[in-house]
Write a protein that binds this DNA or RNA. Structure first.
Length: 306
DNA sequence: CGGTTTTGACCTGCGC
DNA sequence: GCGCAGGTCAAAACCG
């Protein structure tokens, strides 16, 4: 991908090997968007990953997601001022039948060590961090994970209980953004839910923070519930070892070849896959949280085929 | 009645 | 310093 993207890329986890390669093989790599350089040839999930679980676990024991999700929203949002407008060509993003899944995390603390050998990235991150809210060390953000779900409902069932504490109209988006907070006491997790302004059928959910508790027993077997099991929401996207509790099988079944996204509008069978297995029609996508979602959705999604 | 949602106000950060 | 936008608060309304 482009250097732009690379430079906007923030690694939370130290990857001293296959770093670049992994990056190119992760969902994150599929988002070459650096705020001003939308790519046509995007790769979301490299087909080399035979399954979603494999994708999660990676070719090695290391979870590729840290690389995939360790995007710095700040880094991406840095280019928000020049994000390509949805105009012209009607960049209606998502191809209905294509599933994108990507996500991002944002370290609560910018781990300098994690960027060893990635000076440029680090620099970008730091700069962004300084220019954004992160400038205040007291307000370092929680880890964040953003997911895109093709769903008819705004608030996706993920197994946790949430209480809505705010709703805000977002600039350049006809759809309001909702703010939710985990109702579990002392749980700091929040999430933002909004619809893609270009494809209302896509719900963008951004989780912030980590649950300090298990999924409520009221878990209703929702796909997303499995997806967002505690391990999933842990920074490394499931502790390296502890992730065993993560429903990989479920993911396998639900996510299928979620990486089957070509970026050129190619279709995948994920849609049906999801639809068949989940009650409310939901397609799960993950994508890097660039901070301002509307800034990344356009380039991140291929427009639906006419 | 307790929990959740709604919604306007308020606060904060950032760009100009 | 001012205005804008995002995020949060909190009181009222709503719901089971």
């Amino acid at each position: 991908m482009s250097d732009d993207f690379t430079q906007s890329y923030y690694h939370q986890q130290p990857y001293d090997q296959d770093d670049d390669q992994r990056r190119n093989n992760t969902a994150a790599a599929a988002f070459p968007y650096s705020g001003s350089t939308p790519q046509n040839n995007m790769q979301v999930f490299d087909p080399s990953y035979l399954s979603f679980s494999e994708f999660f676990n990676g070719p090695t024991t290391q979870n590729p997601f840290p690389g995939a999700f360790d995007l710095s929203p700040e880094a991406f949002s840095a280019g928000k001022e020049e994000h390509p407008p949805p105009s012209g060509g009607g960049e209606t993003p998502a191809t209905p039948n294509s599933s994108i899944s990507s996500g991002s995390t944002e370290a609560v603390e910018y781990d300098e060590n994690s960027n060893k050998g990635k000076k440029e990235i680090k620099g970008t991150l730091e700069n962004d961090a300084k220019s954004k809210k992160g400038s205040d060390p007291k307000k370092q953000r929680q880890s964040r994970y953003a997911f895109m779900t093709k769903s008819e409902v705004d608030h996706l069932e993920d197994g946790y209980r949430w209480r809505k504490y705010g709703q805000k109209a977002v600039k350049n988006n006809a759809y309001p953004r909702s703010y939710y907070r985990c109702t579990t006491q002392k749980c700091p997790v929040k999430k933002r839910v909004e619809r893609s302004f270009e494809d209302p059928s896509i719900v963008v959910t951004t989780y912030e923070g980590q649950h300090n508790h298990d999924v409520p027993t009221t878990l209703r077997g929702s796909v997303v519930a499995g997806m967002f099991a505690p391990t999933m929401l842990s920074p490394p996207f499931g502790a390296p070892e502890g992730s065993s509790s993560f429903s990989q099988e479920l993911l396998l079944g639900q996510m299928g070849n979620i990486y089957g996204y070509g970026g050129d509008g190619g279709t995948s069978n994920v849609t049906n896959h999801q639809q068949n297995l989940s009650g409310p029609r939901q397609q799960l996508h993950q994508f890097p949280d660039y901070g301002l979602l509307q800034d990344i959705i356009p380039p991140a999604f291929p427009k639906p085929e006419p």
